[in-house]
Design a protein around this nucleic acid. Structure first.
Lengths: 186, 186
DNA sequence: GTCTATATGGAGATAGAC
DNA sequence: GTCTATCTCCATATAGAC
């Protein structure tokens, strides 16, 4: 039974496997099952094997965030861009049921393999949020710290939500952070 | 060459391997190398193999936190206990160079294998911090949220610090959170 | 309680038919 | 571009000598 017809479709499915299992925990047979593609097909799409898959998955995730979050923060009207960020984050992580693959990769040795894309994802996000806050009137010193706090809060809330198996944690954490950002930008 | 003489010593070394590589990424041969124990010795200490090792490592980490952080928060004078928490956290995670093994396990499928200890670690920490804040005069509604925020901030800061390979992030994040807790407990 | 040697399965990866 | 068959290697785990 063929289910996936294009590489792009495969990437989205592979991304979910890496997200759920981690880089080391995601085996070729799991990926085979979940994509309904044979190893032959997978290696046709990704001659570099698992490492190439992960690299393309990271690029795919980064592209989504760039489009939905980073670019608005960098160029759009700051208040609207920040509101859009919270909407996009909530949608993307599905109330904490989904984790941040790039954050998870950062925690173990996988980070060394993909250091550059991992680093640039978080740096661009932090810089973009800082810039939006600054454009919106937040004092320069506060803006950097608030940006770091917001992104760390998101990552930490994902850990807690999964650890306690409680979705409400993510929602509540997001709500608080949203208010803190807003209260510093008036 | 024998280096490890007691199981306790082995557990601490094994913990570092899991911390650096994750559960799936930590192979028996890595563990063999790092503990300088042969597979025979390791299986003598841990007949249940890798899964038992991880379970004992989780218990070991939990015991450290219970002694240094949870029990003081639960029973000691709250202001001193909170101060002790920040000291212990900073020492334990070594400015973000070390990650939280229990938090990392929570992010992938490893969580399902060790759901109970992972959950109880974070629940006890959150409850203990909430209780200390309450005893110290923080309004009940705020205490819960501040406790969740503080623990999520720590976890998130560890992710960011590693992702950006920047130790200062962890220190700064800890400093901000410490101030936020203090400002709500006066 | 430590070790070496070994069993067995599944890992990532390749070849080549269709 | 998809598949099956196959390769090699390393994973976890065991047996049994010392």
């Amino acid at each position: 039974m063929r289910t996936v017809f294009e590489k792009t479709d495969a990437i989205a499915l592979v991304a979910e496997v890496f997200r759920e299992c981690g880089y080391e925990g995601a085996s070729m047979s799991t990926i085979t099952t979940r994509t309904r593609l044979s190893k032959g097909s997978l290696y046709h799409f990704f001659p570099g094997g698992k490492e190439q898959m992960a690299a393309e998955v990271l690029a795919h995730v980064d592209a989504w965030f760039a489009r939905e979050i980073f670019e608005p923060l960098e160029t759009a009207e700051p208040r609207a861009a920040i509101a859009q960020m919270w909407t996009a984050v909530d949608e993307y992580f599905r109330s904490g049921k989904r984790i941040c693959l790039i954050g998870a990769f950062a925690l173990d040795e996988t980070r060394d393999r993909f250091a550059k894309p991992i680093r640039s994802y978080f740096e661009r996000w932090t810089n973009a949020l800082e810039a939006a806050l600054t454009r919106n009137g937040t004092p320069a010193g506060d803006a950097r710290q608030l940006a770091e706090d917001a992104i760390a809060s998101i990552q930490g809330a994902l850990v807690l939500a999964r650890a306690m198996a409680d979705e409400t944690i993510f929602e509540r954490s997001l709500g608080r952070m949203r208010l803190r950002l807003a209260s510093h930008t008036t």
